[in-house]
Each structure stands twice: as C-alpha cells, then as structure tokens.
Design a binder for these strands. Structure first.
Lengths: 345, 345
DNA sequence: TTGTAAGCGTTATCAC
DNA sequence: GTGATAACGCTTACAA
C-alpha cells in the first residue's frame, strides 16, 4: 500500500485477502465450483473482491486467450432507418453471448472502410459483420483480415466469397413489379439507389426483368439511380411528373425514396393511389403511418442481423482453418399490400 | 518456423528482419523519425512488416498504457430515429481521434444497463457517453465506474453530477406552446413520452408552464404520456379526437408521435392544419417530407453527439483525480415553422 | 489446498 | 544504434 495504484487489479485482491493471485483467479474462473478449495478461503477472496469493487481485466484475458469477445459491425450509415433494426439484431445476439459490438459507419467511402478495418484488426476483434452490398473494387482492404484470422460475415450480396445473409432482391423486386403490371400498369418508373450498392443494382435488375418479361419498355428516363433517401425520391419523382408520359406507378428502391415520391406527388397536386401508385421496399415502421399507407416489400431486417451474428458465432466454433460455407442464407421477403396501389385510371 | 503460430506478432517481424523486437517497436513508435537508427535497419524492418502483414496488437499496448482508446455509447434504442445522428456525431469525433465506439442498447432496462456497464468496465473503456435521460433510480450501476476511473459524459438531463450536453427542453417546449397560444389556440393537447425519461418530463413541464402562464386549463385528458413512437401518437391522438372538446392543436413530445397524430387525424377525416395544428420535436429528416410539412423544434442532434465526445476527450486529458465541470453544455434549439400549424378556425 | 512462474504482445528503461 | 528485460493483468501448468 505504498504508492496508490491507478486501478484495482488481481494483485490488490490477493493482498487484501491474504492469498496468492492464483487463488483469486481460481475463485473467478468458470469451473470455479468444481475446483477444490477451502470454503473459508473462497469467502475471504469474495469479500475482498466485493469491497474493492474488483472487475477482472478482459484485455489481459484476451491477450492470453487470443479472443477478444468483440466484433466489428461495418455499415454505410446508421442514419438510414433500414439499419437500426439490423444493428439491434446483431447486438442482441452478440450481447446474449457475451460479445461486444464496435460500430463503424463508412459512408460507402473506401478510405473510411480501410481505416476502420485497420483499427478492428489492431484490436483483434474476433469477427466482423459487413453490411451494405459492396462491389469488389471497394473490398480490397478486406485482405487484411486473413492474417489475423478475423472471421467475416456479409449482409447483402457482396462481391466476395464469404458466409452471408441476405434476401433475394432481384426476385422480390420482380414480384413487386409484376404485381403492378398485373393491375394494368404499363408506365412504371423505377426510383433507384446508389450505383455502388449491389442491393440497388439487384432491385433495378428485378424491375428490368419483370418489365422485359411482360414486353414492356421502360418509360424514357424511367430508371433513375440516386440515393437511398427522401430527397432523392422527391427530386426524381418530381422530374418524371413533369415529363410527357407521366408514369402511373413508381417502384421505389426503398421506403425513404417512396416517402420522397409521396411528397413530390402531393406537391404536384396529385393523389396516391388515384393518380399514381407507389411501392416501397423495406417496410420501415413509418410505412404504416403515412397516409395512404405504403405498399412495400417487408424485409426481416432484425432477423437478418440476428442471423449474421449467429453465423459469426458458428465461425468462431470452427477450426481456424476450416473453409466457411459460402452459400448465402436467404431470408424471405413479403409484399405487404397496403393503400398506395390501385389500378391505373 | 517450427510450429505455426496463430497470428503474426512483433517477434515474427523481428525474426524475419533479423533484429530484436525492441528495434521493431522503435520503427513503429510515434517519435520514430527522430530516433537515431540506421536507415538500412529501418527498411529491413519495414519490409518484414509489409511482407508479413503485421499489425501491432492494440490490446497489448492498452494493457501497458492503461488506455484502450475505446468508449462506450449507451442509449435506449438506436431504432428511435432521434439517435442515429447522435451516434454519428459521437463516432465521427471518436474515430477522428483514434477512438472506437462500442454500442449498447439498453431499452431503458436497468438490468441491461447494468450488464453493459459491467462489460464496458471489464474491457476498461476509457469513457462512456450515456444518453436517454435516466432517473436516479436507474443509475445505481454507474457507481462501478469510479473504481476504474472511467470518465462519463451524459447526453440529456440525467439525475447525476457529471459533465453533460443537452438542450433546454423546458424552455423549448414552452416556446412552442406559446407559439400555439399566440395564434389563438386554447385547446392544446400534449402527447408525451415515457415517464421514466427526463426528456419527456421536461417537455411536459414546458407545456404546463406555458399553459399555466397563459391562464389556460389543460383539456381533460389532454396530457397523455406514452412512448416516443408513432403508435403512441396515433392512439393517444385518436382517443382525444373522440372526446367532447376536441383539441385544436397537438403538441407532441417528438416527431414520431407527431407522425402518429397525422395518421389519426387523417383517419378521422380531419385535415392538418385546418382542423387541427400539430407541432413536433426533434426535426428528423422525415419532418420536411410529410405533407403538410411538420412544424417542429429542431434539435442539433449530430452536434450534441460531437460535443459529448469532445467533452469525453477533454476529460481524458485532465488529471485522473480532477473534478469534472458539471455545468451542462446547452445547445440551442429552434422552432422551425412549416405547414402543420394555423390559427384555430 | 495453495503458491510459483511462464507467457500472452507490447513499450520503455537500461546496458552495451 | 541496437539488444535484453521488466512490466502491464491475467490464466494455467507445475510444485509444494
């Protein structure tokens, strides 16, 4: 008790209890109940732990065991309302298994992605969940992970060979488009997302497949790539409303874009679904609270997050050199018919 | 090279470069350029580092320096759209300074809060940002932090003595209420948030202060506590619409509640703002995309997050035993007048 | 039943 | 200019 240590360590507990640090460690070890040890000793140690407010240092344990019980969660931007449920899914499963989650927002910027991977590797996270549907060109920095055997699970279709969880964006969008076509729509515009996102690409592809299969031509300027936000939907929908052949339906790459389209239609004095139908994608909570309620493709985002974390946990249990299964886990989507769609008039 | 090590460490680099680990460490150390060292040696080491893909282990460094460069971010639920910008503010400042952010969603559950604090302390995070406006009763687990000198910064008004960042919820809500009163509204209902949240409490208090000062009586059943979500706003607004003296204005504790009120009004065949005015709080992105656009109190959420992280960084630079300033940093709010408010008819 | 000591991957202090 | 080595806080053989 000569110099005041910064914090309390196992040594302080040992001193307070009058035992060796090994004995303290035994009290704390998981198989503690089985271990033979005098009851009186155990109690002395437990008393010291409680009095000092001691908490074992997980860094030291991690160093020893080569396991940090920490995972990185890499995504474009948590501000996109699609992500919070995904984050919750990952975090809830993680914390239930004693894992921590380090959040990394990349803004789809390859430099930020690379920088985050650097710090995740330096802290030796056990694994990483990466979301956002990246193209191969942006994924170079992932090679880093091999050296430190960092497990990787992808959410969405990425251009890489790894375990992944996703939905079938092509099929889902195709079905949504066919639904509109089935109601008699011919002039269907597609309001898309960023070109660098495989999710945006796949949804556009599904739209195109349905249009082609029905022998329909995409309206001139009828495919607009943009951002996954309201502003993008507002601007692109607004532009199309001014065109000669006004679309009778808008198929949107996500709900935020659809909300922007709602605003553009309202500002043009048009009514949904009488003057134009609108279909979204994701089924965020707000989709049932806009009026008219939004017809959209429900994505089990929370479950996707859960499943991604489960795949990571499974990877931790495998032999270090095991080849991971790379067949994507596909979760089902569902077209939720609400009030924003009607046959064209 | 007899047995294959799991990962590459400083020892492998030293062996590959034919130097001691001390020399490798010097190449990596920050003041490296100044240090006297043969150019040829440095290059040999750098080559080995590159070839092996070596990354120094930050756990080992943290153990030595007693600094993990990691902070915890504790909040009720990232799914509430109010939080993502806050998270980004914290994370952007954190990553710019080399810090990582561990995300912890508590769902306002004291047990979850306690469990997260346990793991944060065990990993020896340098500090914690806690958001959500907790009452003293739920904050008992924070005493843990003292033992390990974990710095704490609060976002919002918490019942504890710590540096904090917040807005003046009472004054802002009072002003918003006065604005409605000034337009001639008398029957103003308040759609509130959870009772366990100081934010919800303060907003309700601001409303009551304005009503009392104007000599107005709160309409019967006109103060409804609930959740910070659309459903709560929808249900409570709907209930009030069925009452004898229908409110001419709804003051909502946040924007999500306001969106719910919009839906309830629409379903009742009423028009905003002709039949009822609606005021929200937060100014989430969607507020400018609903129609009519939502009049609301803009909260600089991103800046709040930034400032919270800056306070934490400042605390790290202080002497370990320094008494932290506990005067809250108050950030300004602004009433954004949009289209959801009109004088009563 | 308990203690001693090696080692996890670093950095920093001291020799040489 | 470079190399040993102690130390950070812990777990786990191995001794006693």
């Amino acid at each position: 008790m000569s110099r005041s240590k910064a914090t309390v360590s196992i040594r302080d507990v040992a001193a307070a209890a009058g035992v060796s640090i090994a004995t303290v460690s035994r009290v704390l070890s998981p198989e503690s109940p089985q271990i033979s040890m005098r009851q009186e000793t155990r109690e002395r140690v437990e008393k010291a732990i409680a009095e000092l407010g001691y908490r074992p240092n997980d860094l030291a344990r991690a160093l020893l065991h080569q396991r940090t019980a920490t995972v990185g969660l890499v995504l474009p931007d948590i501000s996109n309302p699609y992500y919070p449920p995904l984050v919750r899914g990952v975090e809830d499963v993680a914390s239930a298994h004693g894992y921590r989650v380090v959040l990394c927002n990349t803004d789809r910027n390859p430099d930020k992605l690379a920088a985050y991977l650097e710090t995740l590797v330096k802290t030796r996270v056990d694994g990483i969940v990466i979301a956002g549907g990246y193209l191969a060109a942006d994924l170079g920095s992932l090679t880093l992970l091999r050296t430190y055997r960092t497990k990787l699970v992808a959410v969405g279709r990425h251009e890489l060979e790894h375990p992944s969880v996703r939905i079938d964006n092509v099929a889902a969008t195709r079905r949504a488009t066919e639904y509109l076509i089935g109601l008699g729509h011919r002039e269907i515009a597609f309001l898309g997302g960023p070109e660098g996102s495989t999710t945006a690409q796949d949804r556009r592809a599904g739209y195109r497949a349905a249009m082609a299969a029905a022998g329909l031509v995409e309206p001139a300027g009828g495919v607009q790539d943009g951002e996954f936000d309201e502003r993008s939907g507002y601007e692109h929908a607004g532009a199309l409303l001014g065109s000669a052949r006004r679309p009778t339906a808008f198929l949107c790459a996500n709900d935020r874009i659809a909300f922007g389209a709602y605003a553009a239609l309202a500002d043009a004095g048009l009514s949904v679904p009488r003057d134009a139908s609108v279909v979204g994608f994701d089924d965020v909570p707000m989709a049932s609270f806009v009026r008219p309620t939004l017809t959209t493709v429900a994505v089990p985002t929370y479950e996707i997050g859960q499943e991604a974390m489960r795949l990571l946990l499974a990877a931790f249990d495998e032999a270090a050199d095991a080849e991971p299964a790379t067949d994507p886990v596909l979760l089902p989507t569902r077209l939720v018919e609400r009030a924003s769609v009607a046959p064209p008039t």
